[in-house]
């Protein structure tokens, strides 16, 4: 079968060992890129002509917001794969992703409101980005709440997977409806930058940060994945070696 390579690749012991081996290859580049992005964003990038130095929050806010969506998508896709093909490793990926995504959604909310304060004069505005972010946080909390309500890992995996997939279908609808709602009430929206085009000295650090954050997610995911894979395996002989190692 053409699928055998795939199944071998997705077998728990293989995934466990591979994740252990890959983690440093993601973690160090992530650390490097984030430090580079920090230097670029905080020192090298010029102040914005409208927002001065206040715009520098973008270098943590935008990557966090990106993570919130990217992790949710990854989680839901993995959950869907686990649901359809009954693949434990895919469920483990979904389970490992949720807390990471939720925490970055939280960071995106806090940094967004800190950015909003000097611009709006208030920490909270019902602007579409922040509102969508808040709803996304609720989706994450619902997912994790449902997961923890089950004693049995298998059932938790499968039930929460249904929720994740339903959530993924809903995210664009929610986002669209929130934007639509916001356009009616003409509330101020979080303007990312004053100028329509950013000079490279501004956007290159942003790109570096985006990649750095994504790699960071990868590294954390791999560590968590090992834990999740272990808790889904029962008395298999490979565990003994893996745990000792």
């Amino acid at each position: 079968m053409a699928w055998t390579w795939f199944h071998r690749l997705a077998s728990p012991p293989h995934v466990y060992r591979l994740s252990a081996r890959l983690t440093p290859w993601l973690a160090w580049p992530a650390a490097l890129l984030i430090v580079a992005g920090l230097i670029g964003g905080l020192w090298l990038a010029p102040p914005d002509y409208q927002q001065g130095d206040g715009y520098r929050i973008i270098y943590v806010h935008a990557p966090s917001a990106w993570m919130s969506l990217f992790v949710y998508t990854t989680m839901a896709v993995a959950a869907g794969i686990g649901l359809i093909w009954r693949m434990k490793v895919a469920h483990a990926v979904a389970a490992a992703s949720a807390p990471v995504g939720a925490s970055f959604t939280f960071a995106a909310l806090v940094t967004g409101s800190l950015w909003g304060k000097p611009m709006w004069g208030t920490y909270w505005q019902w602007d579409p980005r922040l509102t969508s972010e808040l709803i996304l946080l609720f989706l994450y909390l619902g997912y994790m709440g449902l997961r923890s309500a089950f004693d049995d890992v298998q059932r938790a995996d499968r039930a929460s997977a249904v929720l994740a997939v339903v959530g993924l279908v809903n995210v664009p609808i929610i986002h669209y409806s929130v934007v639509w709602w916001n356009s009616l009430h003409q509330a101020p929206s979080l303007m990312y930058l004053g100028k329509p085009t950013m000079p490279p000295s501004m956007y290159v650090p942003l790109l570096i940060m985006l990649v750095g954050f994504t790699l960071f997610y990868g590294a954390v995911l791999l560590v968590r994945l090992r834990g999740e894979v272990l808790s889904r395996e029962r008395a298999a002989s490979w565990i003994r070696e893996a745990v000792r190692a």
Partner: peptide, 15 residues
């Protein structure tokens, strides 16, 4: 838990 799962998904309907 049911409210936590359902209400966020209901938001487009509400809007």
């Amino acid at each position: 838990l049911l409210s936590l799962l359902t209400l966020p998904l209901d938001i487009p309907v509400l809007i």
